[in-house]
């Protein structure tokens, strides 16, 4: 817990110390492009500010994520994209000093409502992390974990079915069907990450948040996950944070560019990578910094 706080603070410190910070931290700014959708928004966020203690990490971000859309969030390290992603299923609650203000809604329901139970929220908005983090249990138990704690199945046969379907959707079934009871930690990095995706899918979430899911993987495993993201978008809404602009270009429908805690530009992915509206976006995607 404290470790995480320290990391968060270090990130903030880094953001504040950057020379460009002075220029970019003027009080008000406008997000260019199309951050908001006219209809079909699965999640909509308005005026979101996030603070770690006294330091502000996210400034007045407004953004919609559409149904069955893949939204990529890009930006230099420490720009707040992971922090923002973690607000979407209240994973930031685990950090004591973190404070979130603004409206964040999932299908019109305020997810920061003090009366809201965070457990069903996280079942509806699942998360896949940067480093594969399978539990020290068998492959089967890893996938069965969510359905069991949420009481989604009542009989062993149903559980078997959920496990198989989830592993199939995560294109891992063929590789592990003969060793379902071997420990999940014994898989390769790419398989572990697909196991974590299967684990998330098993709960049947509506939105899947992915925090740099491929940064610890080799190109082949990355290609498999990217293929998987394309398939998953038929059933799920996906928000993905990535450092790879090629990945953002390949998998996403819309791309959001964050810079020092501010949402600079949101546009269709094609437009962002060919003809961005904002000069900072252009500077970042052409590799002038970041």
């Amino acid at each position: 817990m404290t470790e995480l706080n320290a990391v968060a603070q270090a990130t903030i410190a880094q953001a504040v110390e950057t020379p460009a910070a002075a220029a970019a931290s003027s009080a008000s700014y406008e997000t260019v492009g199309q951050p908001f959708l006219d209809s079909g928004a699965k999640m909509s966020m308005r005026d979101v500010d996030v603070f770690y203690g006294d330091k502000q990490a996210i400034f007045n971000v407004g953004l919609d994520i559409g149904q069955n859309e893949v939204l990529a969030m890009i930006g230099p390290s420490g720009c707040g994209k992971s922090t923002f992603l973690r607000c979407l299923n209240r994973m930031n609650d685990t950090i004591d000093i973190c404070r979130v203000t603004g409206q964040l809604q999932l299908e019109g329901q305020n997810i920061y409502d003090p009366k809201l139970d965070v457990v069903p929220l996280r079942a509806r908005v699942g998360m896949v992390f940067q480093k594969p983090n399978p539990f020290p249990k068998s492959i089967y138990d890893n996938v069965a974990y969510g359905p069991r704690i949420h009481g989604l199945v009542s009989r062993r046969a149903e559980l078997d079915e959920v496990v198989e379907t989830s592993l199939r959707k995560a294109s891992l079934w063929e590789e592990v069907k003969d060793r379902l009871h071997a420990p999940g930690t014994g898989l390769s990095g790419g398989q572990q990450q697909r196991l974590c995706i299967a684990r998330t899918i098993a709960v049947s979430p509506e939105v899947i948040l992915m925090d740099e899911p491929c940064s610890a993987l080799d190109p082949i495993a990355t290609a498999k996950i990217e293929e998987l993201i394309a398939e998953l978008s038929e059933n799920f809404t996906i928000a993905i944070v990535t450092h790879s602009m090629q990945q953002a270009a390949r998998v996403s429908h819309r791309t959001a560019y964050f810079h020092l805690g501010k949402l600079i530009e949101v546009n269709d992915t094609e437009k962002v990578f060919t003809n961005p509206d904002h000069e900072l976006t252009e500077a970042y995607i052409t590799g002038r910094f970041g």
């Binding site: 685990t94 896949v128 992390f129 983090n133 539990f135």
Partner: peptide
């Protein structure tokens, strides 16, 4: 026990006590 274990469990919608009983303590 790495924080990532707890995050993984909480991210699936497990409660704190489920996370402790089923993930943290076994690990």
């Amino acid at each position: 026990v790495p924080q990532s274990m707890r995050d993984g469990s909480l991210g699936l919608g497990a409660t704190k006590s489920e996370t402790i009983k089923q993930v943290v303590i076994p690990a």
